[in-house]
Amino acid sequence: MATSYADSAQAREWDRRYDAWGREKRPQANEFHDYEAAALMLYQLLDERRDRELIERKASAKRVAGAVDQIGEFWGMRKKP
Rank of each mutant, 00 (worst) to 15 (best):
M1V: 08
M1A: 11
M1F: 11
A2D: 13
A2Q: 11
A2W: 10
A2H: 09
T3Q: 13
T3V: 10
S4R: 09
Y5M: 12
S8M: 04
S8C: 11
S8H: 06
S8Q: 04
S8T: 15
A9C: 07
A9P: 05
A9W: 13
A9H: 10
A9M: 13
A9V: 11
Q10W: 09
A11L: 06
E13Q: 06
E13A: 09
E13N: 06
E13K: 04
W14M: 13
D15M: 04
R16M: 03
R17N: 04
Y18D: 04
D19C: 03
D19N: 08
A20M: 04
A20I: 01
G22Q: 02
G22L: 03
G22D: 05
G22F: 05
R23H: 07
E24C: 01
K25N: 02
R26D: 05
Q28Y: 00
Q28L: 08
Q28M: 06
Q28C: 04
A29R: 02
A29I: 01
E31L: 04
E31I: 00
E31G: 00
E31K: 02
E31H: 03
F32D: 07
F32H: 03
F32I: 03
H33W: 08
H33A: 11
D34M: 04
Y35S: 09
Y35T: 07
E36Q: 11
E36S: 06
A37V: 02
A37N: 01
A38F: 03
A38Q: 07
A38L: 11
A39H: 02
A39G: 00
A39P: 00
L40F: 02
L40A: 07
L40R: 07
L40I: 04
L40E: 11
M41S: 09
L42F: 02
Y43H: 06
Y43I: 03
Q44W: 01
Q44E: 14
Q44C: 03
Q44P: 00
Q44F: 01
Q44T: 01
L45Y: 02
L45P: 01
L45R: 05
L45D: 13
L46E: 15
L46A: 09
D47Q: 12
D47S: 07
E48V: 02
E48Q: 11
R49S: 09
R50S: 05
D51G: 02
D51P: 00
D51V: 06
R52E: 12
R52G: 00
R52K: 13
R52Q: 11
L54V: 08
L54R: 12
L54K: 09
I55W: 01
I55Y: 02
I55L: 12
E56V: 05
E56W: 01
E56H: 03
R57L: 01
K58C: 09
K58E: 12
K58R: 13
K58H: 08
K58T: 14
A59F: 05
S60D: 12
A61S: 10
A61C: 06
K62L: 14
K62M: 13
V64F: 03
A65M: 09
A65L: 10
A65W: 00
G66N: 15
G66H: 09
A67G: 12
A67V: 10
V68Y: 02
D69L: 14
D69N: 14
Q70P: 00
Q70T: 10
G72L: 15
G72E: 15
G72S: 14
G72Y: 13
G72M: 15
E73I: 15
F74T: 14
F74M: 15
W75K: 08
G76F: 04
M77I: 14
R78G: 07
K80N: 11
K80E: 14
P81S: 10
